[in-house]
Computed example of a mutant assay.
Amino acid sequence: MSEEKLYAVKNDEGKYWEFFDNSGFWALDISDSPITPSKDQAEQVADEQGGHVVTLVEEPEKVVITKEQAGIVEEARVSGIPATHISGHTDAYNGEERLLINAYVNGYTMAKEKKYNVKVPHTKEVWYYKSGDTDLLTIFPADKELRGTFTESEIEHYGLQDCEKEEVTDDDD
């Protein structure tokens, strides 16, 4: 995040000072230049013309976290002491606690789970795919990109940990 800031001067009517030609206060949607990089200039206008200085700050980037970590952050939102909740459910030594505190404060997005095509053991070039949420069927390699893929948790659920797997990248989706 940049340390540079921009400033505006807003009056009690919700209008902003026009810094381009110093022509007075205007509605934001019709103002040509309602901002200045100079805090001193903004404070001087506020003193001389009325109004107050508004500091514009860049929105921080959202943190990328896992689904499990998102659960901890959401539980912290309803906790009486969010930082203590996060601290009690994370490992401070690997940086997770700091990551989740940042997610709590700045917002987050969830990381995309890796997905895999899984080869059936003891068969020749046959791959599993999912049919619905529970059925497993097999296909030949030429068709594998046309079928569903598995996340790590699904591979574990179906007992396919010992099978050969091939990661599917975004290019393959």
Rank of each mutant, 00 (worst) to 15 (best):
W17D: 02
G80Q: 13
A70P: 06
N94S: 07
E167T: 01
Y128Q: 02
G88L: 04
D32S: 14
V57S: 12
A92W: 11
I139Q: 08
K114F: 06
D12H: 08
E4P: 00
K62F: 00
F19A: 13
G132I: 14
F140M: 12
E74H: 01
T84F: 15
S131I: 06
N22V: 03
G14R: 01
V45P: 11
V78I: 06
T134V: 12
E75K: 08
H85P: 06
E166K: 13
F25K: 02
K39D: 02
T55A: 07
A46R: 11
V73S: 07
P34Y: 04
F19K: 12
D143F: 13
H52A: 13
N117V: 12
E43V: 00
I86S: 01
E59D: 06
D29F: 07
T109A: 09
T138F: 00
P37C: 03
G14H: 05
K119T: 05
Y104C: 10
A42L: 03
N117P: 00
T90I: 02
E167M: 05
F25D: 02
D173Y: 14
D173A: 14
P37V: 04
L99A: 04
G71T: 11
N94K: 05
G107I: 07
Q69I: 04
N22E: 11
C163V: 11
E18Y: 10
N22M: 07
T169N: 02
E97C: 14
N102C: 05
M110P: 00
E152G: 04
P60S: 00
G88S: 10
A27Q: 05
M1K: 12
E48V: 03
E156R: 09
S31A: 15
A92R: 10
N22F: 04
P141R: 09
K5V: 10
K119H: 05
D172G: 00
P37M: 04
S87I: 05
D162C: 10
E154K: 12
T151P: 11
V118Q: 09
I81M: 07
T123H: 05
Q69H: 03
I86Y: 05
F140L: 13
I81D: 09
L6G: 09
K62T: 04
T55F: 07
K39Q: 10
P141G: 13
K15S: 06
E97S: 08
V118I: 15
W127V: 01
D29N: 14
W127K: 06
W127F: 10
E154I: 06
A42Q: 03
Q44M: 08
K39A: 09
G88C: 05
V57K: 15
G88P: 04
G24A: 11
H122Y: 14
H52T: 14
M110K: 15
E58S: 12
H85N: 12
K112G: 14
F20R: 15
R98D: 15
V168W: 07
Q49E: 13
Q44C: 06
K39S: 05
D133H: 11
K115G: 03
N11G: 03
